[in-house]
Design a protein around this nucleic acid. Structure first.
Lengths: 336, 336
DNA sequence: CTGTTAGCGCGTTCAC
DNA sequence: GTGAACGCGCTAACAG
């Protein structure tokens, strides 16, 4: 069983082997100050031979922070979350940063502060909070103001910098589409939201109001496709429901199966539109009409934002590629 | 725009405010040595007032390592990968560790070493490699022997400690099931594998050989459900194919849609069995018969293993909850 | 129980 | 260009 045994080589070892002083090694490492070619090469050779790797903790101690950005999220596996994190990691790695992930299991104050404490125990350069839900909002509140913090979110920010995906407009677009198809109104099965009402629910409601259509009560499904399945099953016995906009694709899929189990057909009896652009949506039968969102891009942008904050540069206010409706098979004109 | 401005409070600030020496503060922090109640409370109050948080880099410098474990993976969003990472993070957080994630984009030597260097620039206590594919294998090779390293994998390990999910046996079970249903043989659509052949392919082949059934050529689909869709579509015109075991559920879903588009019905015309237990599988129509695997548990176990290595304890050789077949609707006896 | 002293590995003065 | 000296924040090893 391999035990961490031999001490990792330190800069002093390199200096000794190369026959130079420690600062000289440091200089070739950072490239801050020129070093004579001969010495540089000896240092490089020594580094190579020893397999030396600078100690990040020592570096961080000197510089005050390390090239690490913390990501705070309530979940890492859900589609949008996972993709956003992937985008953050990708951009971070390209910039020589590494990402630490800490999940916050609930919006309970204890869970939030203990997770934040754990994450901030390391001298991170900045933090990205996935503000897709109430947990994200709570995390933002618990973060010290002195840090470089950005939120990745669906809704626009307040005081702290936000990278956003405007799902409100996209939800309106999807709702308009269903209305235009001839449905008298559109129902909404919602995911948990960061505010009183998610951007998606807001956009849906606005579109309905603008069209003078009735605004049905929102059905809350949490994150569980199974719950959406139940909702779908019960909706199957309600002939007044002809179109449903779902808070995300997993719910849409659960809903469609519930509808199917209840004896209703999509899109013949009822139209369903999802949200996010989950890769399995297009493989469903019927394939899922949905609002595609570029979460990876949101993640990259979030990183760019923190990076700018860290360097004290003005935040690059380039807006993200916005969500857009992708028309497939699951929505159609109503029956009659 | 909030810039990182005011220096974070350090232990000296706390000591000064509490009117004690620095080591005393350290002692109440670590609890290593008893401190008189009066002083302890003053220290605690000062910590509270200042919002002090110990600097992990400084700690790491002293202790030789910090409470950080690095996770190396080729991907963070695919179902099994994401869940394993979730499990690692969960166990790590419970133990006061935080996880850093670095993705390795390809098995190309450059990509591997640069990612490993980036990850190890920080003084991690240990590392977990997701050895589900060739990239994981390459990463393992690039890691220094002096580190506490464990692989989370489907296949059993060689020199380094492994936490495994025995998918070979489970693949045999699934294949046996299809054979028992009356299929003369079973085809296999494979994911990329960490070895020449994945455990899943191996188990499938073994079961076939044991039963004296013909072993068809493996169809490689990569990770893309779309590719499985194409395979399904082409398989639709091959009446000799009556049962397919897929390397994962996403492929199974893509395959089923391809079959559907090619005019074949599942399970009437053809049986399909997936792998992993993706939550959307049960919502498909037909719901997907699959081999469920507890990836989160694999992740937790992987962390427990590194944690043990770090402390120099013998590795806890408790075996993980093993994958098992979940029978649903997508597999049935052949037509004739 | 407590304060003093030393040192973790590195970058950054500052002299030469 | 280069080396010597110092300090980042913290804990461990000593004295008391």
């Amino acid at each position: 069983m391999p035990r961490p045994s031999t001490r990792a080589p330190a800069i002093t070892d390199v200096a000794k082997l190369a026959g130079v002083s420690v600062p000289t090694v440091s200089r070739v490492l950072t490239g801050s100050v020129p070093v004579s070619k001969a010495r540089r090469e000896r240092v490089l050779a020594a580094i190579e031979e020893l397999g030396y790797r600078p100690n990040g903790a020592a570096r961080a101690l000197v510089k005050g922070h390390q090239s690490v950005i913390a990501v705070l999220a309530s979940n890492t596996t859900r589609y949008g979350y996972a993709l956003t994190i992937q985008g953050i990691e990708e951009a971070a790695r390209a910039a020589g940063f590494i990402v630490m992930i800490t999940v916050i299991e609930s919006e309970d104050a204890g869970a939030v502060t203990s997770a934040v404490d754990l994450a901030l125990r390391n001298p991170v350069s900045g933090v990205v909070v996935l503000k897709f839900d109430p947990v994200g909002v709570a995390a933002l509140r618990a973060l010290p103001k002195s840090l470089a913090v950005v939120a990745a979110s669906g809704s626009r920010g307040t005081s702290i910098p936000h990278a956003t995906l405007d799902d409100t407009a996209a939800a309106s677009e999807a709702t308009d589409y269903l209305l235009k198809l001839g449905h008298t109104t559109v129902h909404h099965v919602a995911i948990p939201s960061s505010g009183r009402r998610s951007g998606r629910a807001l956009g849906w409601q606005k579109a309905l109001e603008r069209a003078g259509a009735e605004v049905p009560e929102v059905m809350y499904a949490g994150w569980e496709p199974r719950r959406a399945h139940e909702i779908g099953f019960s909706l199957a016995s309600r002939p007044d429901v002809t179109a449903v906009l779902c808070g995300n694709d997993e719910l849409a899929i659960g809903l469609m199966r519930g509808l199917y189990d209840g004896g209703r057909r999509v899109p013949d009896d009822i139209s369903v539109v999802g949200f996010d652009g989950h890769p399995l949506g297009e493989l469903w039968a019927p394939s899922l009409t949905t609002v595609e969102q570029d979460f990876a891009e949101l993640g990259r942008r979030s990183f760019d934002l923190v990076a700018a904050l860290i360097e004290g540069k003005p935040a690059p206010m380039t807006s993200a590629r916005q969500p857009h409706l992708v028309i497939r098979e699951s929505a159609a004109p109503p029956r009659d």
